[in-house]
Structures are given as C-alpha cells and as structure tokens.
Amino acid sequence: MEINATYNSLVAVGDSFTEGMSDLRPDGSYRGWADVLAGRLAARTPGFRYANLAVRGKLIGQIVEEQVALAAGMKADVVTLVGGLNDTLRPKVDMVRVKDLLTEAVEHLTPSCGQLVLMRSPGRNGPVLDRFRPRMEELFAHIDELAARHGALVVDLYGAPVLADPRMWDVDRLHLTADGHRRVAEAVWQTLGLAREHDWQEPLPATARPGWMTRRTADARFAREHLGPWIGRRLTGRSSGDGRPPKRPELLPYETRSEV
C-alpha cells in the first residue's frame, strides 16, 4: 500500500555515497542511488525537481557548513541526509562533535522539508568494518534517536546482509556497485511508502570463494590503486572532494536518462 504516491521534489545531501560513486555511466559520470530514485519519482510526477548537493570526501562538519542551509532553503518534499561515516573512518574522531553536528543538521532540515530521510549506511564485511564498527554503530544509534525525536524516516542499509556481501562493493572497497545503488534506491522508495518494485534485500547467488591467488591479486590492486592514495590524502590533509562542486546544485526539473 502506498502511503503517499506524490512527491514533487527531492534534495540529496551528503558525501560520495550520495554523489553516486562507484556507479559509473557510459560517459564516465556517476549515477548513484539518488539519481536512480529521482528518475523513478520523475517518471510518475510531471515537473518533478531534483538537486544533489553531495560531494565526495566530505565530513559532517563540511556537510553542515556547505550543504544543509542550501538544502533547507529549497523547501523540498523530500530531503535525504547521509553523513558522518567519513568521520568514523578517520584514525581519530570526536564522536560527540560528530553527533552534535548531525543533530544540528537534522534540526535545521526537519522544519524546512516535507519529509527528512536518514540512513544507517551499509558496511562491507571485512577487517575495515570490524575495526570501525563500534564508531559506526554509535553513529547509527544516534541517527535512530534523532529520527524518533524529529519524525524522520530511517533506511536501515546496515542491517541488510546482502549489502555487506563483498560482491556488492567496487574494487575500492568503499563504494557500492551499480546493483548496490539500485538496491539502495529501492530501499528509499519503499521507506517513502511507495509500492515495492523488487526485493532489494534479495541475496546474491551462491558462488565458490575465489582462490588464494585471486584474493591476493585483488588485495594488491586495492592497496596500490585505492588504499595508498587514501592514506596519502589523510596524511596531507587533502580530500578527494577538494574544489569539486556539487553534481546538481540547483533544484530543477529532472529529465530521466535512458540508462536510469
């Protein structure tokens, strides 16, 4: 049953997860779950408008400073806010400050939009998640509290086993594949009370585990192409989003693309 079949506008706020990495289009741009969701909403609502303010690498403080007021001013029917996970992955983090900033964002956005949507972000199974799991779960518990206090919806991606499957993650081990983004879009769609189109939690088919050599080759490629550069940026205080503008900074009518 559809709770509300009509949404006229969507604003997405966040970091690389909402920007759409690593869901590449044929032209080299990123699509991502927010674009997929916008395309589906636009297909059913003439004149539907969409803005995506997300920029890769942003910490919650930067999201609050650079995106929240802009999003609030757009007065959209739906605003999605996903942030704070980049903070939890830093070697040192002040979780009290992270939670305070997230609270500030929610308190600013809630009265300005029709419906605020928060997320418990997905996490890939492996040693990285195990190391940072306590911080992530502290963040997610706070998200649940904020949602209950302010009437926001929460999409629980962290609790979905299929999104922890390593096959759902790109070679950088930080961002979902195109199928992962498609599933996230469906999860948000259903959370908004729209009729289910597919089972976003359906497990991937069982396959044999890759051999030792295949796994070591993948580990070496990951370290060379992704882990090393990521560590380098942390050591020099740089971010992959430095100087990069939002992918869709204005709330404008959304034209669907054929690959969406």
Rank of each mutant, 00 (worst) to 15 (best):
G123L: 09
A178E: 08
P210G: 10
V64R: 14
A51K: 02
V93K: 00
F48T: 01
I143E: 13
Y254V: 00
E2I: 08
D144A: 06
L252K: 10
R196T: 15
L146V: 07
R25D: 05
L176D: 02
W33F: 13
P26V: 00
L194K: 04
K247F: 04
V128W: 04
E250M: 08
I60L: 02
E107F: 04
H175N: 14
E66F: 03
P246R: 02
H142M: 02
R257F: 04
A206P: 05
G57S: 09
S240P: 06
L153R: 11
G126Q: 07
V188F: 07
G193P: 10
A178S: 13
D35F: 13
A38E: 04
Y7L: 02
V82Y: 00
P26A: 04
N125L: 12
L53H: 08
R120S: 01
F48N: 05
I63G: 13
A69H: 09
V106R: 02
G14V: 08
E202W: 09
V96L: 12
L176E: 03
D27T: 06
A152D: 10
V68M: 05
V79H: 01
M74K: 04
V154I: 06
R234K: 15
R173I: 03
A38C: 11
P203L: 01
D170T: 00
T177K: 07
P203M: 01
D242P: 10
L10S: 02
K99A: 11
L227K: 04
L59D: 07
G232A: 02
K99H: 14
A72G: 08
A208P: 05
N4L: 13
L251F: 03
R182H: 01
N125T: 14
H142S: 05
P210D: 10
A51W: 07
E66I: 01
L153H: 11
M119D: 14
V128I: 09
A12V: 11
T103R: 05
L59M: 10
Q201T: 15
F132Y: 14
L116V: 01
L252H: 05
A141N: 06
P205K: 15
R49G: 10
G47E: 11
V128C: 09
L24E: 11
P161Y: 08
